[in-house]
Design a binder for these strands. Sequence first.
RNA 1: GGGCAGUUAGCUCAGGUGGAAGAGCAUUUCCCUUACAAGGAAGAGGUCGCAGGUUCAAAUCCUGCACUGCCCACCA
Length: 883
Amino acid sequence: MNMEKIYDSKSVEKKWSKYWVDNKTFSAKIDINRKPFTIVIPPANVTGSLHMGHALNATLQDIIIKFKKLQGYNTLWVPGTDHGGIATQNVVEKFLKKEGKTKYDLGREKFLKKMWQWKNKTGNAILEQLKIIGCSLDWNRVAFTMDESRSKAVKKAFIQLFNKGFIYRSKRLVNWCPRCLTALSDIEIEYETEKSSLWYIKYPLRDSKDYVVVATTRPETILGDTAVAVNPDDDRYVSLVGRILKLPLVNREIKIVSDYIVDKFFGTGAVKITPAHDAIDNEIAMRNNLEIIEIIDTNGKMINVSAKYCGLSVEETRKEIVKDLEESGFLVKVRDYNHSVSRCYRCCTKIEPLMSEQWFLKVEEMSKKTIDVTNNAKTVFYPCSWKKPYILWLQNLRDWCISRQIWWGHRVPVYYCLDEEGNKTGCKPIASFDKPDECPYCKGKNFIQDDDVLDTWFSSALWPLSVFGWGEKENNEELRYFYPTSVLCTGHEIIYLWVARMVQFGLEFMNDIPYKDIFIHGIVRDKHGKKMSKSLGNVVNPCDIIEKYSADTLRFVLAQIATPGRDMQVSEEAFLSARNLTNKVWNASRFVLMHLENIDKIDDNINSVDLADDWIISEFYDTFAKVKIAYDSYDIAVVTRVIYDFFWTKYCDWYIEFSKIRIMSKNMNEKKQVLSVLVYILKSILQLMYPIMPFITSEIWQVLNKDTKIIAESTLPDKKELKCKTSVEKMKSIQDIIVRIRTLRSEMNIPPGIQIGILFNILNDDKEKIVKENQHYIRKLAKINSIQFGKNLVRPKDSALTVSSDFEIFLPLVGVIDVEKAKARLLKEITLAKQEKERTSLKLQDEEFIKRAPKIEIEKIKIRFNEANLKIAKINENLDFFR
RNA sequence: GGGCAGUUAGCUCAGGUGGAAGAGCAUUUCCCUUACAAGGAAGAGGUCGCAGGUUCAAAUCCUGCACUGCCCACCA
């Protein structure tokens, strides 16, 4: 058999990732006899290359998919990428800038051509990287949010919503990025605390010498003020409501209005109202029928203001205004103030709220349905703590601004009828797949398409439908079979941007949820808990890890830390430890294979006759059960830990060691017997590990099963009926004895090379048989060359000893024994035993405890008390020898 | 302002339906024993953030508080 001494992850991983792709191992077809298990990948932006977040996200989905496949499901994991709207356009614009050009120099058509070139060149890098980490995606189904099929889905969805009246055009206050030159939705902005000032400004009354002082963080917007608002319950101002103010510097006459939204206790309790450039002011303006004056244009420059300020930037204007206010005596005071400013989530430029005509999507009805399916547990969050904020968000959701003033994206499929001079006729616009032939209203034949493109999240929201060809194929069997998908796996940063909207669209277009389970994982952080970012220089690149260690190592570490919903830290040490595991797996397998070499055939049907076999099989099924439960709640961290623990501490540290003894046996049946269990458990471990570490397990599996199926197409074992669970208890006794002797040897400084004899007093007759039957294990693992069993053996002179409630072991060491050491350890043991006796006897004297505690607990304490007592007596007896 | 997490060994984190504190890494001692020194054996190391409460019994449940992080908000 061909297992090199050192595992060569590089060549093995290369081989298998190619094999899976070439053989289409993970291609899925409709199979009505099998249950589907489907995941659609969160499509990565074409701008990106794989970072730790992607690696984690992909690894977790892959683990789930692979496990379900082993369980016999017809699994499908759909790959794909997202065109990434603004983010991607920004990247290409940056390249243009280096050439000294702007997109306007090229024009829309040429610019889009450039975008496509760029996408075609770099867009698939991330998919290739997913192949490297071993993802079992169906590569026949790679989808892109702007490919033909997905574009049809977007058009169909838009037209349907448009004709239903859910999509409408309106001029309102929107979040505007003056750098990207586009509107953004409410969740595409991020807040950042900024050190700024609060300016207190006098607004004089028109008809008296009095004035009102307002506090503001944006003095420059004074130019667009159309009112001052106060709280109707504010005694200071109640008499002023309705009075007229003269706006400083501008001299426009504005009213004092009242509105409950105004906080009496903030600033002066009077707030200046700039309806065109502030969301709250805009609301107040709506309620009070105020004039809206736009003073900032889409470039962030002043308009509709006096020549002095016209054309200045917002920052410049602020300086000028403050200076002018101060000079003319309107500025009362300035104080330092921290407040949060909104920034574009794509370029970090400060958002400028302004009035703009945009396309909006009504969300009320869809949100209501989405809340319902969440409350009815048709969709379930893992962890469930996301349910509450999710519902809260849906309840307060405002209509979604879906249009963007960029070029890269799905162009709004709305057409306007044109007259002969090329002007819009004013006929109702038409939503349509292609340019309409004829206007149904005026019979005109000239049309122009809307200039805007859709928010990139609009096409993302259709992803679970569009990947199956919704909108393209009629009578879609694939969609019927694979939809709804089984689970959505993503980070919490896009729950609102993406997850909620997919559910809304799924319910809208399919009348069914897109997935039942929503598995939210944490964010990968560095070892200090900081978010990874290029600017901090703390980015751990998954490709570097793969290069340095292996893909299996990377996967294992990510799996190990993936507690649902919690952020996690990665560090170099974690990779070392995972690398050690792969090494251990390799070597344990080599051990098994080595001994299989001269064996013609082993029985596939294991039948255990030995305690060690019973024990390891029992432990395996216990582990297997725990693994299945952990998968049910997507707790991959637990899955990983449980498997690791079983493999290392049970299989390697104990079972393989036990096996060695029987393998050495001359008896071929005995040899075959133990090998059959060794192989059976090893294969099962490989299967459990395969979803986490697919490469090394595939390689070993193939060596073990030359002529049979690859591990990816294997099936997990059914539960074996175990003879009894008592093997675990019995084994504990044997292990306890071995550990005790080892401890004694270690503390007495007896080198492992020296074989010793022991005297073994059995104190508990129930244990006699089991200990005697398994003494070969004790001999071998504790390096004992002779055991003398007895009931009342007397401790030989110069011997160390260890005592439990079941037995007493003497370790005679003539000439070698360090009497003081032996005595010291007895004193230590007796101290512990006395503490135990003290603790338990106090409990047993406690009347309330005896009265109220469950019987089983009282029994446990009694046993512990008796054991402690016995131990103390035995140690005392032996301590006498040292006196 | 509201909400949600977290606070356990030097570090990273498990555990937690209440009934004798766990792992990995680091550390100490011994061992290159024919799967593995990327290993094995044995040890040391914690009043489970603070203060109350419930209970026979609290790391675990409840209430406050502190600190850390995240999310949401109508922070003028």
